[in-house]
Design a protein around this nucleic acid. Structure first.
Lengths: 137, 137
DNA sequence: CTTGACCCCGTACTATGGTACGGAACCTAT
DNA sequence: ATAGGTTCCGTACCATAGTACGGGGTCAAG
């Protein structure tokens, strides 16, 4: 028989199963619901049921966070997904692409500084590493 | 005459001048002092004076933050700069280099997803953008 | 028909990195 | 000497993104 915990029931998950599938905690799901990033399904006898769509949204949220969007903006993106406002979505995307390019460049510079530090710190075996100096660019 | 506000006096700044030179707010300096990231100089008549070393430390803090170090770890790095523990410094650096490489890869993936979104959102002029879909990788 | 695992709900608390506020003291130019 | 701009100090507050807690309800298996 098909019950809550079984893979065949992917179309009907409990909050715990959704959380596991999305690699987040149950409390995080509830938090996203409070923030209206995920819907709060009507209860079928005390317990709520979630489906593939909820999981897709959840995964999207995590991806979008990686991209540096705040939960606030992610909510807007989710709303936009259903709407007609193509230019708004494009604008959010291009703004973020620019921010990501800048951020990537920053991180690459930081990484290069750290590589220099690690190298200078490895040469010679006495005295302090020139930690502050290695960041003076 | 040489006074506080003048460039010639870089070796003796007030907190406000230090803040300006480091592109941070005065409150941020005080915050860093409370966290022991910056020293709290002894007062010469009610007002504290800062020098080039303080500015170097402040700039280092901001660089290190860009590199993703927490203030906690930055404090350790600052302590290490004066000490003899080369291996600890090297370890912190290499750990962070790895984290940065991972982060850079994440951001590049996110950027590529957004580029795809912007492109797909630009083609055709009606209907919603496939926002969620563009992140399904 | 009880037990154990899971769910619901509201509220409170956490970490990180600041930012703001209010009153007193100080410093410099007029 | 007085007005203004800073500084000092402690305390309080903020945003973001969760995480924890406690008390009660539900559900499926044994």
């Amino acid at each position: 028989m098909l019950t809550r915990g079984m893979p065949e029931m992917v179309g009907s998950m409990t909050i715990g199963e959704l959380a596991t599938a999305g690699s987040v905690g149950v409390e995080t799901i509830r938090f996203y619901q409070r923030k209206h990033l995920l819907r709060t399904p009507v209860r079928g006898g005390g317990i709520r049921h979630y489906d593939e769509t909820d999981l897709r949204r959840l995964r999207f949220i995590r991806q979008a966070q990686t991209a540096g969007f705040t939960l606030e903006v992610i909510r807007e993106l989710l709303d936009l997904d259903a709407g007609e406002d193509r230019s708004r979505a494009r604008k959010l995307a291009t703004t973020r692409i620019k921010a990501l390019d800048d951020k990537i460049a920053d991180l690459q510079r930081a990484r290069d500084a750290l590589r220099r530090l690690a190298r200078e710190c490895a040469e010679g075996s006495t005295g302090p590493c020139p930690i502050l100096a290695s960041f003076d660019v």
